[in-house]
Design a protein around this nucleic acid. Structure first.
Length: 575
RNA sequence: CGGGGCGUAGCUCAGCCUGGUAGAGCGCACGGUUCGGGACCGUGAGGCCGGUGGUUCAAGUCCACUCGCCCCGACCA
């Protein structure tokens, strides 16, 4: 492709509305442009990177036994009512009406549609398993779209769904898809990790996320050199370091002490000469049906996702000051478990491990010191609702874990029968019994993966594309485009490269060298070839890699060979 | 949904406080000089100052409403 025939428009200045690197650089490089909040145009350069990723995805999924289909973006409400998600999804689901006033939605995901497709066809266990995927535009009306393609409202996603006669067969497909995902991200040249994940709203038994590691990632993940990795929402820990020993005597019963105006654990601890870990922090949550007092050690935080799963509720939030006062009898900031009767008490294991503690007294400006868990209060439930933090011991090997940030680019689930039962997607087994299909689903954010690649591969000048995702692998830069001898050489070389099947963009613009070089650095083509008057006079061209910028000359008549060798070298690095 | 900010030329922004003929840089067009790391000189085109309604002799500027966009938050007792 010739630059002058393509549609490539770089920006000299950063767009005012772009915050993160990938968004900024992709807009500046002319790969995407914004149409509305969270909705982007994929311009020719951007689309090429997307298409390259899609090709890799297709190859690996087909190899893993999945078959492509394409489902409608617009879906009838009836299906979503069958699965009950029509009522569970909030405003994130874009609902629309047709001219007959019938309800539809723009699909944020396709479990309902695929289940409908499969239930209409599958009758017998002999027809299973089924494994289908699509690459398609989805829409989720996010509360706050941001970060360009990283978190748009409209986005391209690969989603796959599998249907099985039993859990063992689902496991086979799950492992195959997991392996396919690994190959996909490896082939893209991305540094990634997998983590155990919470199954969230989609539900199911087992789930893994694929995270591209980048300091700017939205998700916190805990990882251990031993190989354990988990989303912080799900992460377990080994035994947490015990609190320092109690610096005074343990009374026979809790002693109230005045703590005027001291609400936060840190403040009260300092005020009383104790360590935050000596405290039981009591937080009152409310769900759709009850109030719950949750106890956590004072130096720890509550993991609300764990808590939500434990309570099995749909809604979870901190209770208002009024409700706290009503249920505890004391103001916010002075709650404690001793004598608390208005709410179910859930204690984290770290609390029960405390030999003695300080807590709120459920009375204004008062705390209790010398509270012995199990003696002075008895929680209804003891569970792990602790939020893992950097340095906590790994649940598998006990070594300290690190907290890293990642960009979630893939998420696979064992769904089980969450959709097949309500939607009656069933088959007859070998004994003639009707059984629900066991399902898996497998998502991969296409645009987000490309954005993550930029997030992970850039420098001060622009993008540094990994070869497999670069919009073009090679850019041929013609300098001195007003010199006929240069034009002749450049045109001939471009023809050779094109005929040889090299993925090349020919910068045939009449621009000053500085402008061209800066554009190339900004867009980040892996291999740059420069043809200019200086080189032509010497019978040479210049090659350089974007990632190191080192230039080397090659004889003009050996140019094609040099390009091929360089590309072969880059491919070999990817394995 | 709450809080904050911003909407002025294709892009990045000034002008608004203190009302009085619409600005800069970049980009674009033309001419000239330059030409291997975002050149220089000259000339020029380009704006219902997001929209609506007020106040006023007069509104980009003040007021109200509205739409759009961005940021923070929507949890830590």
């Amino acid at each position: 492709m010739r630059w002058t025939r393509s549609f490539i428009h770089t920006l000299r200045q950063d767009p005012a509305d772009a915050e993160v690197v990938s968004h900024r650089l992709m807009v500046r490089a002319g790969m995407i442009s914004k149409l509305a909040a969270g909705i982007y145009n994929y311009l020719p350069l951007g689309l090429r990177s997307i298409a390259k990723l899609e090709r890799i995805i297709r190859e690996e999924l087909e190899a893993a036994g999945s078959t492509e289909l394409l489902m409608p973006a617009v879906q009838p409400a009836e299906l979503w009512q069958e699965s009950k998600r029509w009522y569970q999804y909030g405003p994130e689901l874009l609902r629309i009406k047709d001219r007959h006033d019938r309800d539809f939605c723009f699909g944020p995901t396709h479990e309902e549609v695929i289940t409908d497709i499969v239930r209409k066809e599958v009758r017998s266990y002999r027809q299973l398993p089924v494994n289908l995927y699509q690459i398609q535009t989805k829409f989720r009306d996010e509360i706050r779209p941001r970060f360009g393609l990283m978190r748009g409202r409209e986005f391209i996603m690969k989603d796959a769904y599998s249907f099985h006669a039993d859990a063992a067969d689902l496991d086979v497909a799950y492992r195959a898809m997991e392996a396919a995902y690994r190959r996909i991200f490896e082939r893209c040249g991305l540094d990634y990790t997998t983590v155990e994940a919470d199954t969230g709203n989609i539900g199911g038994s087992e789930s893994h996320e694929f995270m591209v590691l980048a300091g700017t990632g939205e998700d916190a993940i805990m990882s251990c050199p031993c190989g354990y990795g988990a989303n912080v929402e799900k992460a377990a820990t080994g035994e947490i370091t015990p609190a320092p020993s109690w610096p005074r005597e343990i009374p026979r019963k809790p002693q109230p002490v005045p703590t005027p105006g001291q609400k936060s654990v840190e403040d009260v601890a300092a005020f009383l000469g104790l360590h935050p870990a000596h405290f039981v922090k009591t937080m009152i949550f409310e769900t759709e049906e009850e109030l719950v007092a949750v106890l956590i050690r004072g130096d720890r935080e509550i993991n609300e996702v764990k808590l939500k799963n434990l309570l099995g509720c749909d809604h979870l939030s901190l209770a208002s000051a009024e409700k706290i006062e009503k249920v505890t009898g004391g103001p916010q900031g002075f709650s404690g478990p001793v004598g608390l009767e208005g709410a179910r008490v859930v204690a984290d294991a770290t609390v029960m491990a405390l030999p003695v503690a300080a807590t709120g007294a459920n009375a204004a400006d008062t705390h209790l010191v010398g509270v012995v868990p199990g003696r002075d209060f008895q929680p209804a439930t003891v569970a792990d609702v602790n939020l893992a933090a950097a340095g906590d011991p790994c649940p598998r090997c006990g070594e300290p874990m690190a907290e890293k940030r990642g960009i979630e680019v893939g998420h696979i689930f064992k769904l089980g029968t969450k959709y097949s039962i309500p939607m009656r997607c069933t088959f007859l087994d070998a004994e003639g019994n009707e059984q629900p299909c066991i399902m898996g689903c497998y998502g991969l954010g296409v645009g987000r993966t490309v954005a993550a690649a930029v997030e992970q591969n850039h420098d001060g000048k622009g993008i540094v594309w990994p070869l497999p995702l670069a919009p073009y692998e090679v850019v041929l830069v013609m300098l001195n485009a007003d010199k006929p001898e240069v034009v002749e050489v450049a045109e001939r070389l471009y023809g050779q490269l094109r005929d040889a099947g090299v993925d090349v963009l020919f910068d045939d613009r009449q621009e000053r060298p500085g402008v061209k070089f800066n554009d190339m650095d900004l867009i980040g083509f892996p291999l740059r070839i420069v043809v200019g008057k200086r080189g032509v006079d010497n019978g040479e061209i210049e090659l350089s890699l974007r990632r190191d910028g080192e230039r080397r000359s090659a004889p003009l008549d050996g140019a094609l060979t040099a390009v091929r060798e360089t590309l072969a070298g880059l491919r070999a690095e990817l394995g």
